[in-house]
């Protein structure tokens, strides 16, 4: 039992924190137009990046450095989980096979989920979504397979190098920008040659956004499925 004293102390702390935060928030009224840099983005996004989705353009292009960091954070998570749950020899130890309904359903849906994830990350510059949601969707496809089959494992030999390669690809795209446009993460496809200017708002536009999002999608998909795999396999005692 949690003692009453501890609870009441916690509630008093919360009241203080809450009052303090509310005072700060009262100075930032809800729903008002306070855009400064945001306005610049909205006005120039189409001309400067070739993407119609302003959020994606900010994520990949204007604030690309953040996204690089974000990819790194996920990579760290997958590496860290792998390091902590590392076993000399490991195997799936699930006990119950999924039922017929689950097995049939997951086999049927698997390709469609993969396709949907791919769709999300390829169309990142046009619709809400992008590499991270797309990659997460792809990882759910593998998660379903893990749930339905007791002995399923992802193809490790393919996924681990793919994860590294996709990450290197992202940095390389940035370094090509450094070589061509003399800025790291420079959008060399759009700003140098204006490829895709004719079909703004269609698939083949948006500069390097689709390329980077494809790399991110692959990376996130493989990483998250790797995390699922690390958590669902256990050590084999011999």
């Amino acid at each position: 039992m949690v003692s009453v004293l501890k609870r009441s102390l916690a509630i008093i702390t919360l009241l203080i924190i809450g009052y303090w935060l509310a005072q700060g928030l009262a100075g930032v009224p809800f729903g008002q137009d306070r855009m400064l840099v945001g306005k610049y983005y909205l006005e120039n996004v189409k001309a400067q990046t070739g993407a119609v989705n302003a959020v994606t353009a900010i994520v990949v292009n204007y604030r690309g450095f953040d996204t690089l960091g974000e990819v790194t954070v996920l990579f760290i998570a997958s590496t860290g989980v792998g390091a902590l749950l590392w076993r000399r020899k490991k195997r799936r130890t699930a006990k119950t096979e999924g039922s017929v309904v689950l097995r049939t359903g997951s086999e049927l849906l698997f390709p469609f989920i993969l396709m949907f994830g791919t769709y999300i990350f390829i169309h990142g510059h046009l619709t809400p979504g992008g590499g991270f949601p797309g990659g997460a969707t792809i990882a759910t496809a593998f998660l379903i397979l893990y749930m339905a089959f007791v002995d399923y494992e992802i193809p490790h030999r393919l996924f681990e190098p793919l994860e590294g390669l996709a990450g290197m690809g992202y940095v390389l795209v940035g370094l090509i920008g450094l070589a061509i446009g003399s800025y790291f993460l420079f959008d060399w496809i759009w700003q140098t040659w204006h490829w895709g200017a004719a079909n703004l708002g269609r698939l083949f536009s948006g500069g390097f956004i689709p390329i980077i999002y494809t790399l991110i999608g692959l990376k996130v998909g493989t990483e998250l499925s790797g995390i699922v795999d690390s958590m669902l396999t256990e050590e084999v005692r011999e």
């Binding site: 306070r34 855009m35 840099v37 945001g38 983005y41 909205l42 302003a54 959020v55 900010i58 994520v59 604030r63 953040d66 996204t67 960091g69 974000e70 992008g130 991270f132």
Partner: peptide
Amino acid sequence: VDPIPQALVLT
């Protein structure tokens, strides 16, 4: 609306 917070939230 302001696109920046949406990008930040994604991160």
